[in-house]
Structures are given as structure tokens and as C-alpha cells.
Amino acid sequence: MPLKPSWEKTALAVSIAGIACLFFAQNYFQAEQLTIGEIEKEKNGTLVETKGRINQLGENEKTLFFELFDGNKIFAIKFNPTTEERKIARENKFVKITGKKELNGKKPEIIIEKISLWEP
């Protein structure tokens, strides 16, 4: 049974408005700047920004992964890294990463969205 035209327009308007709200929220949503020790207390899915030194770097065709160290350590992984990001992420380099905190088994990790060089 089709919706009345007014309902259809309302449903379409609500869906577009909802998508627009979420889209613009992305641009205003700031990552929380935290140390690695503080990240472990955050909820899964929280967007965080942290800094540290790269240890135990590894990479393959689709991923770049390493341990980030600032006194504490956390595993970080970047899917589909660009060539630029692969150049930035070198062993013992200091970097700033932004990403979502997730749990892999019992261990927290960061799914990286942005990575940039950082001068300590």
C-alpha cells in the first residue's frame, strides 16, 4: 500500500535531512587529544588523536601497522594507506595519528584515519 504523496515527500525529506545532518556533523566533530594511556579508558568507536614513536612497523599490500609508543604502547593499523602515508610511517619516526579506538580481542587498537609527522 503506497504512502500518501505527503508522507512520501516527508520520508524523502527526512532521509535527506538525516544524511545531511550526519554529513555536516563529520566536519564539526573533533577528535579527542589523548595520551595512549588515556585512550584505553575510552569507549570503542571514539575518535581519538594521539602522538608517539613508531615501533615494530609492518606493512603489506592493503595495510600499514605498527606499535605507537609514548611511555605506553598501542597497536595502530591503517587500511589502504597512500604512498604519502607509507613514506611518513617509518620505524622510529614521531607521528600524530587520528583514528577510532577499537578492541581486538582484549587489546585496544586504533584504526587510523589520518597520520602525519610530528616534531616532539
Partner: peptide, 14 residues
């Protein structure tokens, strides 16, 4: 588009 925003975007959707 909804999937791209909520599953891969920057905002934290629980």
C-alpha cells in the same frame, strides 16, 4: 551514503 558516513566516517556512531 548513509553507510559511508556511519560505518566509515569520522563521527562516532555507537
Amino acid at each position: 551514503i548513509l553507510g559511508l558516513i556511519v560505518l566509515g566516517g569520522k563521527i562516532f556512531v555507537q
